[in-house]
Design a binder for these strands. Structure first.
Length: 365
DNA sequence: ATTGCTGAATGG
């Protein structure tokens, strides 16, 4: 019977709290009856030894990566980084002290090109925030400000997106959204390159997945799948938290009145769902050269929802502690050449010790 | 939740 599996899958996304996942683990644990100590309490439902067992089970239980890294949410780029090398992505969190400095120049160049493009569309305003709710409110305000611009047929840049993938809250920023001449809603992701040629297949693959995730989450937002309580529950925010004066002022400037966090949440939800914003029809990645701004090529992507969701499921299984992190396959071992963690990498060591080569290529359609 | 909780993305 595999019915129990699907039950778990159904139950999980709804729960944002750790006590629920604790009870889940208790079901998996062997039921221990070590009632040697207090037989007098046997009439009680809450037996002391059971309590003890629960405590030790809690302590012994391996934390999920989300718990160990104290993460309430993931960034889209965290997930797409798993395409390149999941193990490397994990090391970046575990060993930030070993973070490489080699390509910071390229990264910063990319950053400033992106910023320059953003400034062509709107000014940046710095707003003082006094609570966590305030800082999330800013993201919602950005979203609320961009919707009318988009609906007026103009382009927007840095569009915030939120959603839930496999029960995990994810956050991202869409580079650019706009309508094509044919009236299709188009997502355009800009990638700048130090080298004056298109990236390798491996990099393109990662970039594509990033864009696929944006579509997945954006579509769910405009289809009304992201309700306000999801926000509150996953991020542990207080709906009644009064917004800071500067945040309230920004809301007024944008034409909204919101005094508490939930006001903004509801406004965002209503604006997203009631304005007939379409799902994204067209996905493209534009590669340009950092030195000359010369276009290197544009990729138009075909979105395969089933394939994206299958990969998402596999990637998030790591975060939820359902499997160990994976390094690159043998044929991608060249990536280790660029990796700051190559010398300490367990995956590499493990592979050198025991040559357990996977004989199943992923392309088994 | 014991008191608590991160700009995302930048490129190879």
């Amino acid at each position: 019977m595999s019915g129990r599996d699907s039950e778990l899958e159904e139950a999980e996304p709804a729960s944002g709290f750790s006590d629920l996942s604790d009870s889940e683990f208790l079901q998996i644990e062997e039921p221990e009856d070590g009632d040697s100590e207090k037989p007098s309490c046997s009439h009680n439902r809450h037996l002391e030894p059971v309590e003890k067992a629960l405590e030790t089970a809690k302590r012994k239980r391996a934390q999920t990566p989300l718990e160990t890294f104290r993460l309430l949410y993931l960034c889209i780029t965290d997930v797409s980084a798993q395409v390149w090398c999941e193990q490397q992505m994990v090391y970046k969190r575990e060993r930030p002290d070993l973070l490489p400095l080699e390509n910071t120049v390229q990264l910063n160049t990319g950053k400033s090109i992106h910023l320059a493009r953003e400034l062509e569309y709107h000014d940046l305003v710095s707003v003082c925030t006094t609570s966590r709710e305030d800082s999330w409110a800013i993201k919602l305000l950005n979203l609320l400000a961009m919707i009318p611009v988009l609906q007026a047929g103009r382009r927007v840049r840095e569009f915030p997106v939120f959603g839930v993938l496999e029960g995990v809250f994810v956050v991202g920023v869409i580079d650019q959204l706009g309508y094509t001449a044919k009236g299709e809603l188009e997502l355009s992701e800009l990638k700048t390159r130090h080298e004056a040629f298109l990236p390798s297949a491996a990099q393109k693959k990662r970039d594509r997945f990033q864009v696929f995730l944006y579509k997945c989450i954006f579509d769910a937002m405009v289809q009304g799948h992201l309700t306000w309580d999801i926000f509150i529950q996953h991020l542990h925010l207080r709906p009644e938290q009064v917004l800071g004066p500067q945040v309230q002022e920004q809301a007024r400037n944008a034409g909204f009145t919101a005094s508490c966090f939930q006001d903004l949440l509801e406004l965002a939800f209503l604006n997203l769902t009631l304005l007939d914003i379409p799902v994204i029809d067209r996905l493209q990645i534009e590669y340009i050269h950092q030195g000359t701004n010369a276009p290197l090529g544009t990729e138009v992507l075909a979105y395969d929802d089933d394939a994206v969701r299958a990969t998402v499921r596999d990637f998030l299984a790591y975060w939820k502690g359902q499997r160990d992190p994976k390094g690159v396959d043998v044929e991608d071992a060249w990536k280790c050449r660029y990796c700051a963690y190559a010398s300490v990498c367990d995956w590499r060591l493990g592979r050198a010790g025991s040559p357990t080569v996977k004989s199943r290529p992923k392309k088994s359609r």
